[in-house]
């Protein structure tokens, strides 16, 4: 969320557009062992992907002069992976909301009829891609079973037990 509307944050809802989940095209993902301080298009297919070599010990690639070793990590069964993006439209909606009049009017309105799920000041999120696996890279060594990401990927099965309804007496 944008800074600046901190006050309203708590009542905001961010709607996920369901159709975008259905239509999300598969994506190629690499989780790199380094921080690249940029969020923008990058010629991954020109420089990175073609340099990947299959070795007996796993995948290898040279990236900015460093050797990375990697492996394919499958998304566990029962999970689906999505890449999501916040819609730009939100700003327009914010303005629309602001121009709708005083707060009191809104409150009155809310009392008069049931509140809709989507409100003008809400924001929207959509899935731009989906994935069932990704490449996990380590610096010089294959991340292996100790990789923290692998631990995290077992979380859903544990969460399922924690949140399952308990048996009756």
């Amino acid at each position: 969320m944008e800074s600046g509307d901190e006050e309203a944050t708590e009542k905001h809802r961010i709607h996920l557009r369901p159709a975008t989940l259905r239509d999300a095209a598969p994506v190629t993902l690499h989780l790199l062992p380094c921080e690249i301080l940029a969020n923008r298009p990058a010629p991954v297919g020109r420089f990175f992907t073609p340099a990947i070599r299959q070795r007996p010990a796993g995948l290898e690639v040279s990236f900015r002069g460093r050797l990375l070793r990697g492996e394919k990590v499958m998304v566990p069964r029962g999970l689906a992976g999505y890449v999501m993006v916040m819609d730009e439209k939100a700003e327009v909606l914010e303005r629309k909301y602001a121009s709708r009049g005083s707060k009191n009017d809104d409150e009155k309105e809310q009392q008069e009829r049931p509140e809709p799920m989507e409100r003008d000041f809400d924001r929207f999120l959509r899935a731009t891609a989906s994935f069932a696996s990704f490449h996990l890279w380590g610096l010089e060594t294959v991340p292996g079973p100790d990789a923290k990401v692998r631990g995290a990927l077992t979380w859903p099965s544990l969460a399922a037990a924690i949140h399952a309804q308990v048996p009756e007496d």
Binding site: V27, T28, L29, H30, L31, L32, C34, E35, I36, A38, N39, R40, P41, A42, P43, V44, G45, F48, V83, A129
Partner: peptide, 8 residues
Amino acid sequence: SWFINQSV
């Protein structure tokens, strides 16, 4: 960091 298709 992620490489997501042709972006970082």
